[in-house]
Computed example of a mutant assay.
Amino acid sequence: MNAHCRLEQANDNAAAFWLSQARAHGWQSRTRPGFTAVRCARTPDDPHRLLVTRPYAEPAVLEQELADVLAAWSTVRFTLEDPYGGLDLTRFGATRMPVMPVMTREPGPVEGGPRTFPFVSGAPDGGLLTVDEARDGDTFAEVEHAIVDGFPLPARQPWTRGGALPEWLLGEPGCRAWLGRLDGTTAGACLTYDDGEATGVYWVATLPPHRGRGVARVVVETALAAAHPDRPATLVATALGEPLYRKLGFTVQGRTCWWTRTSAGG
């Protein structure tokens, strides 16, 4: 499959992941050909999430559609992902953030990765590292806590149970959560989302005291092996995370431009 198709798979998975959160939270959403919007509403000023999923011939047409959504939802803050880099949202008071790579991995086992699940291994410094799937509310709360403090999500700090990721997400088809522990203590986590075509990896997090001990790698390896190894995997990487994902077999399919507005006035 060519890079263009893999990029679209990644875009579609991200849109489906945010729509699953909309269902779990009871948020409004809009889906149009090539564009998905979610009206996040944990608080009145929660940033709304906008995702471009297909190339566009006329940026001005898409920008007007965005303007219509922002007006209809009385949007104050928003984050928009544009994998095609042709939009200019400065007139909306938005700031362009550094681009980030959209990466995909072809189906198949991770070389040297776990072959059993739940995964138990020795950490590089001698600790005992385990990775389990969160199947109940208490374990999912540990995952949420690790993501809020380890990713991190400053707007959700201090962490409160269900404030960022409600337990109802466990009931969303395709949504799974993975928890890494070092010597029995929560150390890291991530979510995966399977949309029937690809498995997206989201919010890979390691808590600060446990960084540099291989937690993120083992959590992601286990999630890839235990979720759907027969499907391609997708993610958006940070600059710090990209080298790890390359080692796990991910390759860059494109680079997405993020725009963010933090207040009504920009």
Rank of each mutant, 00 (worst) to 15 (best):
P47E: 06
V76C: 10
G34Q: 04
A60Y: 00
V218F: 05
D138C: 07
T185N: 09
E58Q: 14
S29M: 04
G113I: 02
H210A: 13
R30H: 11
T186M: 12
D149T: 15
A164M: 13
P209L: 09
D136V: 05
G249A: 13
D125E: 14
V204Q: 05
G93H: 00
R176Q: 12
E167C: 11
W73K: 09
L128F: 09
E63A: 10
G212S: 08
G188N: 05
E197D: 11
R54V: 05
Y202M: 08
A41D: 15
V52Y: 01
V252Y: 01
V143D: 10
T75K: 08
F78R: 02
D195Q: 03
L240W: 02
T53P: 05
T160R: 15
T186R: 08
D125M: 05
C40P: 00
F78N: 02
P83S: 03
V143P: 05
V252T: 15
W27P: 05
E144L: 08
L129N: 06
L240G: 09
G26Y: 09
A155T: 12
V61D: 10
G108P: 06
R91N: 06
W168D: 15
V61C: 04
G34I: 03
T95D: 15
G113H: 04
N13A: 11
L224S: 10
